[in-house]
């Protein structure tokens, strides 16, 4: 008999505060597994953001720093430029990265910082109670878009990965999804690739993870998985948006 799956040492023993069925927990596990498999847990510094992910410093078994809303890429820049031998990542939601922190994420990519950005996109502000995010889909209801996102009022949802892929300093950008085991396997490969590029000093990497917010969306956990697959993926197509040519 052999153990083919067990909890990674990349996560602490602390149970997460996430709502039942929220795939944030999957994202945490994948990052933890990758850092463990690369042997990086003792040499990594993570940057927690503001939003549901704020308590991520309680869950990752690595040194962590709390960052003001949207500023994690700037904080990560300061850390990586001070201790270039350490692995540095940010863990940011879409409110954090795609709204208040757009300047910081664009310029960290622009400078080609050797950091890895884990971008969890659930198309809503979860922690504050389900307000509209820049990533909220057209027509999608939110507490600050009670009749659904109106593109005339609020614009169309922002595609951050496409945007960052256009920045010359970005090395690797991929969008993956957490709504099905098959996709979760792919997501892990993308995260592994992101951290591997950092280890090779090949520049800025960002992995966007489409994730559910059952509470914010007003859906049961299983229905939320289906909603993601049916609604988010058509607007936010999965795949590699930018990658270095392999020799």
């Amino acid at each position: 008999m052999s153990v083919i799956f067990k909890k990674t040492a990349g996560l602490t023993e602390t149970d997460t505060h996430y709502c039942p069925g929220c795939t944030h927990g999957v994202a945490h596990r994948l990052v933890g597994e990758v850092l463990e498999e690369l042997g990086l847990l003792g040499d990594t510094i993570g940057c927690a953001s503001v939003g549901c992910s704020i308590f991520s410093y309680n869950y990752f078994n690595v040194d962590m720093i709390e960052c003001s809303h949207g500023r994690a890429p700037a904080v990560a820049t300061g850390i990586k430029r001070t201790v270039p031998g350490k692995t540095v990542f940010t863990y940011q939601g879409d409110g954090d990265l795609a709204a208040i922190g757009t300047a910081e994420i664009v310029h960290a990519a622009h400078r080609g910082e050797h950091i890895t950005v884990i971008f969890v996109n659930n198309a809503i502000y979860g922690m504050t109670g389900g307000q509209m995010a820049p990533t909220t889909l057209s027509g999608q209801k939110a507490t600050t878009a009670p009749t659904g996102r109106n593109a005339e009022l609020s614009g169309m949802p922002l595609k951050m990965s496409e945007m960052i892929a256009e920045v010359p300093g970005a090395t690797y950008v991929e969008r993956v999804s957490l709504h099905h085991p098959k996709y979760i396997r792919k997501a892990k490969k993308a995260i592994l690739r992101g951290f591997t590029y950092q280890l090779q000093n090949r520049g800025f990497s960002m992995v966007e993870l489409l994730s559910t917010c059952p509470t914010g969306w007003g859906l049961a956990p299983v229905a939320a998985l289906e909603w993601l697959g049916n609604n988010m993926i058509p607007y936010y197509p999965l795949g590699v948006l930018k990658a270095p040519e392999e020799v």
């Binding site: 940057c47 904080v75 820049t77 430029r81 001070t82 300047a103």
Partner: peptide
Amino acid sequence: LQAESEIAAVNMLYGSAAA
């Protein structure tokens, strides 16, 4: 390092000093 704003600069300072 020249930052993209004073906001970024003070946050880079935070990260660097924290390290």
